[in-house]
């Protein structure tokens, strides 16, 4: 059964490590719905989160193929309760005062903030589950959306579960 999975990958922060991963996804025909990457509190370690869709077998291959990469330190599929957040910036055209008021109401409903105001444009910042952002954008589609930028989802398990790295340094 095809399901949406959010996978976190801890990687060594080396040049081209992201290319290695995306190139592997492309070569093996895995589709990435979204991708976000950033540094972690551990020096030299970055964290990437992927949203991928696939059946169990595909997801198992995604994880195994990721693990094959030398610079991949840890792969975790967030299957249990998880926090999932995405940020989006949306620029919308505004004509009259009425539109301005309507847009403000929509923003409030989604807890979006107006982060930039111009004579004929408003820019919103919204964070939340990607599905919420989808709905926000859907609402805005009745207006003149000029530009959107989404970061891709980042995720973390709820509660006390954490992704642990094994101790470094191994004599060979």
């Amino acid at each position: 059964m095809r399901q949406r999975h959010v996978i976190s990958v801890l990687v060594e922060d080396h040049p081209r490590v992201l290319t290695r991963i995306t190139s592997m996804f492309a070569r093996r025909g895995f589709n990435i719905d979204s991708l976000a990457v950033g540094r972690t509190h551990i020096p030299g370690v970055s964290r990437i989160s992927f949203v991928v869709e696939g059946d169990d077998r595909t997801i198992e291959q995604v994880e195994k193929q990721l693990n094959r990469l030398i610079e991949v330190l840890k792969v975790v599929d967030h299957e249990g309760p998880r926090l999932e957040r995405e940020l989006a910036l949306v620029k919308v055209r505004v004509e009259g005062i009425e539109e301005r008021i309507e847009l403000k109401e929509i923003a409030e409903a989604f807890r979006a903030h107006i982060v930039d105001v111009a004579r004929h444009a408003l820019t919103f910042e919204v964070t939340g589950h990607p599905a919420k952002i989808d709905r926000f954008l859907e609402e805005l589609s009745n207006y003149g959306v000029l530009e959107t930028m989404r970061t891709g989802a980042v995720a973390m398990d709820r509660g006390e579960r954490v992704i642990k790295l094994r101790a470094r340094r191994e004599a060979v």
Binding site: V11, E12, L69, I70, E71, V72, L73, L165, R166, R168, R169, E170, A171, V172
Partner: peptide
């Protein structure tokens, strides 16, 4: 070096 440190490859 005498040792190898490849934490992602075991």
């Amino acid at each position: 070096p005498e040792t190898i440190d490849l934490p992602g490859y075991r």
